[in-house]
Computed example of a mutant assay.
Amino acid sequence: MLLFWEQGFESTSLSQLRETMGNISASSFYSTFKSKEALFEEVIEMYMDTFGQVTFCLKDSSLEPKQAIEQALRQSAKMQTDGAHPLGCFLVLSATTCSVENAHIRDMLSKQRKLTRDWLTACIQNAVEKGQLKETTDVAMLTTVFQSFLFGISTQARDGVKFDTINNAVTQIMKVWDSLAL
């Protein structure tokens, strides 16, 4: 997972993967994973079951919508700036650009990112329905604001921006929510 996260799908070679797995033979690799793509799909699942859980609070109905979004942003910033693994978000950085032949890899990750967008949309729509945000709130626009910020953390983290700076930026982006609150 870390190799794909650091280098991306296309830049990670089969020989690098085999070496990382203890110098296993090509036949062992293919008998276990079938293909580099199949391994990548497993890595996506592994990422979502571990590091990707930082946004699962968006699905937590026990949290108020604003709290869920703010928690997702702060937890994501903390995870993405943690030097114990590659910086940034695997789902954002590992295949944003691919050759035409690997567009399906980019689409796999896009599908995962869409889940986060759907969770954000549901939080915001829930806040409108609960009367926490104005009835006239443009849910799609506000979703885009928070998703753009969330995914932008990846570039900031990869470029070495520290958690404290991003965390302070979360405080500022949440003022957008406050401007639409009742």
Rank of each mutant, 00 (worst) to 15 (best):
V170C: 13
G131H: 04
T116Y: 07
A169D: 12
L180G: 07
I173Q: 15
K175E: 15
L58H: 04
T32G: 01
F51H: 08
K162F: 03
T121E: 11
I124N: 03
L109D: 03
M174F: 07
F149P: 03
I173E: 03
Q172W: 08
C123Q: 14
D82P: 05
W177F: 13
V139L: 08
S31C: 12
W177M: 11
L142G: 09
S62Q: 04
Q156V: 10
V43I: 08
Q71V: 00
K36S: 06
C98E: 14
M79Q: 06
V176H: 08
L3P: 05
T116D: 08
T136Q: 12
V176E: 03
L63M: 07
I173C: 09
I166D: 03
V176P: 00
Q125R: 10
V92S: 07
F146G: 03
N167A: 11
Q7F: 15
F9C: 01
S110V: 05
M174H: 08
S27V: 10
Q125P: 00
Y47L: 08
F51K: 05
C57Q: 07
F56R: 00
S28R: 11
H85Q: 14
C89L: 11
L91Q: 01
K130A: 10
D118T: 15
T165Y: 01
C123M: 06
N168E: 14
T32R: 13
M46G: 12
L142R: 09
S94Q: 06
S99M: 12
L182D: 04
N167D: 14
I24W: 07
V176G: 01
D60F: 00
A26H: 13
M174L: 09
L73N: 01
W5T: 00
F33L: 00
E10Q: 04
S35P: 10
E37Q: 05
L3F: 07
M141T: 14
T155L: 14
T121I: 06
G152Q: 10
F51A: 12
K111S: 15
Q80L: 04
L109Q: 08
